[in-house]
């Protein structure tokens, strides 16, 4: 992330988006609409936008719009998986014999960008029976702790989640 060409072309847009996000957050927290409060909010948001515009926006805006559209569809699927995961964990915890068989597995992915790796890691942690331990960003290697054999197979054999995340961020 942070190549010079993309940073230069998107600088004005980055400042604008950061300013809008910061100012909306200010309005959300204060909720008072007089000259003093709104003026202080504008000044603070401008300072923050000029200092840290390259943290929030790192790509061209049309690419980001398409990505966020696909990301929302992915989030809906993810919410359903989270519900399944919770019933799974509640079943394992409340079962008198506790059917668990923990193991640590490793697998490689083709994902490289920060946002894609964070999304996949958090999705793995929230979906049934697996938690991310270590990530090697250079090789795209994930180390995952799984609570039983079945969720480990879902990551190692089926690879549905990796494919979905790769489709969202278009890194096949």
């Amino acid at each position: 992330m942070g190549e010079k060409s993309s940073a230069k072309s998107g600088k004005g847009f980055g400042i604008f988006v950061t300013f809008c996000a910061m100012f909306l957050f200010w309005l959300l927290l204060s909720g008072i609409l007089d000259v003093l409060h709104v003026g202080a909010g504008i000044i603070c948001s401008l300072i923050i936008a000029f200092v840290s515009y390259d943290l929030l926006v790192t790509q061209k805006w049309d690419k980001m719009l398409r990505k966020s559209g696909r990301f929302i569809i992915y989030v809906v699927w993810e919410l359903w998986q989270i519900l399944l995961a919770n019933f799974d964990v509640a079943y394992r915890v409340l079962h008198p014999k506790m059917p668990i068989d923990p193991s640590i597995i490793e697998f490689d992915t083709s994902l490289r960008s920060d946002l894609a790796i964070v999304t996949l890691a958090n999705s793995i942690t929230l979906t049934p029976g697996t938690i991310t331990i270590n990530i090697d960003q250079e090789k795209g290697r994930f180390q995952v702790h799984s609570i039983a054999q079945k969720p480990a197979d879902a990551l190692l054999v089926d690879k549905t989640m990796q494919e979905k995340v790769a489709k969202v961020f278009m890194e096949e």
Binding site: I82, V89, V93, M98, G129, I131, H145, I147
Partner: peptide, 20 residues
């Protein structure tokens, strides 16, 4: 409280607490 070690305990807290 019930699960046997640190890693499996985090399975319970990381998922159930978030959704709850």
């Amino acid at each position: 409280l019930r699960l046997p070690d640190f890693y499996t305990r985090l399975h319970a807290t990381g998922k159930c607490d978030t959704l709850g």
